Amino acid sequence: MPYYVEITNNFPGGLYQYVRFISLYDEYSFEHEFFIKISQSFPFMEKLSLINYQSQKHKQSYKSINDNYNSTIVKYNYLVTLHIGEVHDDYIEEFLYNTKTYFHSNIGIYIKYKSLERVTHNFTRDVLRINCAKISEIFFYGEKIYCKSLRDYFPCAIIH
């Protein structure tokens, strides 16, 4: 089975080494530990789609890198496409903050421009630049006029 769709917080875990595409959807927030479970259950995942408008409950743990509760970095070694256009801003930060998420270069993301602008503080927030530099393509929903600093923030990306 190459795909597993509409995974919720009730996902029991397991190993799905042949699944390449997954989609996550829930009405309850996904916490960092859930993304750890997902990355371990789908080690060869290439495409990830996420829909969740609820803010993360344990977001305050982002403030402390030494906090044991949220210290594990989620690794997506084979991820090439990330759909985060229908999410709360917390999930954009979850994926772009390099102390939370690691992925290789050449990632294509689908995202709302205004959400990205908010999370990056109008493309000035330095702590997100490491993962942003790994993005090779950005597909925006909505807005068609972009800030000039967008190009500097995503130096390797083709912007669609």
Results as ranks from 00 to 15, higher is better:
89 D>G: 04
103 F>S: 11
147 C>S: 02
85 G>A: 09
151 R>H: 11
145 I>S: 13
153 Y>D: 00
120 T>W: 00
97 Y>K: 04
132 C>G: 14
91 Y>A: 05
93 E>L: 04
153 Y>H: 00
83 H>S: 08
72 T>M: 06
148 K>T: 15
74 V>E: 00
155 P>E: 08
145 I>A: 10
77 N>V: 00
101 T>H: 04
123 F>C: 10
114 K>A: 03
69 Y>S: 03
126 D>M: 05
90 D>Y: 09
114 K>M: 00
105 S>H: 15
141 Y>N: 13
141 Y>P: 11
68 N>T: 02
68 N>P: 02
109 I>W: 07
102 Y>A: 00
113 Y>A: 14
140 F>G: 05
139 F>C: 09
98 N>R: 13
150 L>N: 08
64 S>Y: 08
69 Y>Q: 10
118 R>C: 14
153 Y>A: 01
109 I>M: 08
147 C>E: 07
147 C>H: 04
112 K>H: 08
134 K>P: 04
144 K>R: 06
148 K>L: 15
74 V>C: 01
140 F>W: 03
75 K>D: 09
105 S>C: 13
123 F>M: 13
142 G>K: 03
156 C>D: 03
99 T>C: 10
115 S>C: 15
92 I>W: 03
147 C>D: 05
123 F>R: 10
142 G>I: 09
116 L>H: 10
151 R>V: 13
85 G>H: 08
82 L>K: 00
65 I>N: 05
101 T>Q: 05
77 N>K: 07
123 F>I: 13
98 N>Y: 12
112 K>D: 13
143 E>Y: 13
82 L>F: 01
118 R>Q: 14
77 N>D: 08
139 F>A: 10
85 G>P: 03
152 D>P: 11
102 Y>P: 00
98 N>V: 14
127 V>S: 03
108 G>A: 02
117 E>Y: 09
140 F>C: 06
80 V>M: 06
138 I>A: 15
83 H>F: 12
142 G>M: 09
81 T>K: 01
96 L>E: 05
85 G>F: 09
115 S>F: 15
124 T>W: 00
145 I>T: 14
154 F>T: 01
109 I>Y: 11
88 H>R: 11
71 S>H: 08
87 V>P: 05
69 Y>I: 09
65 I>D: 02
77 N>L: 03
106 N>S: 12
150 L>H: 03
72 T>G: 08
145 I>M: 11
111 I>M: 01
139 F>L: 06
123 F>T: 06
105 S>Q: 13
127 V>N: 09
100 K>C: 02
98 N>I: 12
79 L>S: 04
136 S>C: 15
122 N>D: 15
103 F>G: 15
110 Y>G: 03
109 I>N: 07
111 I>Y: 00
144 K>Q: 11
